[in-house]
Design a protein around this nucleic acid. Structure first.
Length: 485
RNA sequence: GCUCCUGUAGUGUAGCGGCCAAUCAUGAAGCCCUCUCGAGGCUUCGACACGGGUCCAAAUCCCGUCGGGAGCACCA
């Protein structure tokens, strides 16, 4: 045999520095502003993959420290999304239940002289930082700082009048690392704690504290957090804590997709989108609804790896992976978009049969029998071909000659090869109206063969149309969501 | 402006000093097969950003240029 040996490549994530079997602890830490979208699935899958590899612990931590950007439903939606993705969470925390901890730690930092309470005008404070200069509050004595902190906690300052700040290096060459805000005052009620608290931690404080207290060994996150890692290091150092290993993967640009939760939310509110699972969005819910399999998403991110290069997300590549998964399990059905009616004469009755899946004949056949008034429908597009070519084959049934009504022209399959006869999908009068919701928000309407009613799988292929996920199936109406071609 | 990250085919990825006239997937083109424009088989297309250096030897190391991205928020 001359067959070339093909090198098969296995896609595996690189090992994690410092990872010990059974001892890793990682986390997924979303802000509960909405459900997860395709962008969030990367960090979720990567953390899950490593946690499984090292038999470690994976924590879900809701970072709800900004009361103004919380959707209460997200606390339920996010775990549902992770569950669909196949991400196993071992423990969950909600930061809004831990405010006292952050307050205590901040007080300690102030006591150590590593934090201060600033009452300057925000712009002035920022401007001074630009110039590597400290504001007057920074160097006040510790006991005065503590008094200010108490006053802040007791409500002695209004919103925007005071902040607690962690000192770093005011002259740090990287302006992004100089002194950062630890706590601020917000009057807006928090969906979970109401008006009980009005001093809210900023993520650099709460993340550093929680990553330590929750025992993180490794933190995987986007490159956009690189500067935050530097900032958080100061908190770790002040308390003498050991920092986890960090991995920063590159940013992902996801084209042609609406991801911003605030935008989606607004469109839902305005009635433009049907909900969080609107096919036009890139939410996990929309992926699920379309018939994208979680295994495809997982494979996509594993193959993408964890490099810190910025990447462009490719729907084509994801579709390719998903097609590998759904093609073998998707039975074939005829869907006729924009149906055109043809009556057939010149024959008594017509019989035909076709396998549910060409590669799996053992699954059974669809049996066709057309008698009485012999009426078929083909798509508007195929109808044009029919009138031009004058002859066409109804796949798995018979050939037709063009005229009105159409004329039966035998059942010789070999004509396809001999004279380039085109086979088209068709349905009979027993077909069912079917709407396919497309990913651009449009609807493809037509008829689908009625044998689909006994189909058990949600995912099927409409031949020469594409894969779809059946959403609603009853004898009067079928609704499906378009997956991909 | 300052600081940081980063540059292998259209996209993603392997390679990290000689095994590279560079891997695999996806994509595109063609053929075969198939009663689908799906799947499968075969073939083809297509990349080491550029310029210097180090070295017997560089996609791999160093420097510069150029390109892409992020941060400099009382968002996460």
């Amino acid at each position: 045999m001359l067959k070339k040996e093909k090198k098969e490549r296995t896609y595996e994530l690189p090992d994690l520095d410092g990872a010990e079997q059974g001892k890793t602890c990682m986390r997924i830490a979303p802000g509960p502003s909405g459900p997860l979208h395709i962008g969030h699935t990367r960090v979720s899958v990567l953390n899950d993959e490593y946690t499984r590899r090292y038999e470690g612990k994976l924590i879900l931590r809701f970072e709800d420290t900004n009361p103004e950007k919380i959707d209460p439903e997200a606390y339920d939606m996010i775990p549902e999304d992770l569950d669909w993705l196949g991400v196993k969470i071992h423990e969950s925390f909600i930061q809004s239940e831990r405010f006292e901890t952050y307050y205590g730690m901040t007080r300690e930092l102030i006591g150590q002289g590593h934090a201060y309470v600033c009452t300057c005008d925000p712009e002035k404070w920022r401007g001074l930082k630009e110039e590597k200069r400290a504001c007057p509050c920074r160097d006040l004595p510790v006991n005065e700082q503590l008094d200010r902190f108490d006053r802040m906690m007791e409500g002695g300052y209004g919103e925007g009048e005071a902040i607690a700040v962690v000192k770093t290096d005011i002259a740090h060459p990287n302006p992004a690392v100089r002194d950062f805000v630890a706590l601020r005052i917000v009057d807006a009620p928090h969906p979970r704690t109401g008006t009980k608290y009005r001093v809210y931690p900023m993520m650099n404080l709460s993340v550093a504290i929680d990553d330590h207290l929750m025992g993180m060994t490794h933190v995987i996150r986007g490159k956009d957090h690189l500067n935050n890692t530097d900032r958080q290091k100061y908190v770790f150092d002040y308390f003498g804590w050991k920092q986890p290993f960090y991995l920063h993967y590159g940013l992902v640009n996801i084209p042609d997709t609406v991801l911003k939760t605030s935008l989606i939310k607004q469109s839902i509110k305005e009635g433009e989108y049907s909900g969080w699972d609107d096919l036009r969005t890139g939410t996990v819910r929309a992926l699920e609804r379309r018939g994208i399999k979680p295994e495809a998403v997982r494979r996509y991110w594993v193959e993408s790896g964890i490099k810190s290069v910025d990447i462009e997300f490719s729907w084509d590549n994801l579709y390719g992976m998903n097609r590998d998964l759904i093609d073998p399990v998707s039975n074939r059905y005829f869907f006729v978009q924009d149906p055109v009616r043809y009556d057939v004469e010149g024959v008594g009755s017509i019989e035909g049969r076709a396998p549910l899946h060409p590669d799996h004949p053992e699954r059974g056949m669809k049996e066709y029998s057309i008698d009485g008034p012999k009426t078929v429908f083909i798509s508007e597009k195929d109808s044009r071909t029919f009138s031009q070519e004058r002859k066409i084959r109804l796949k798995d049934l018979c050939n037709l000659e063009y005229s009105l009504p159409a004329r039966y022209a035998g059942n010789d399959v070999s004509e396809m090869r001999k004279s380039g006869l085109k086979a088209v999908q068709w349905v009979s009068r027993k077909s069912i109206p079917c709407d396919v919701l497309m990913t651009d928000g449009t609807v493809a309407s037509g008829l689908v063969e009625d044998s689909i009613l006994s189909e058990k799988s949600e995912t099927v292929q409409f031949e020469r149309f594409g894969f779809v996920r059946i959403e609603k199936k009853d004898p009067e109406k079928i609704v499906a969501a378009y997956t991909h071609d």
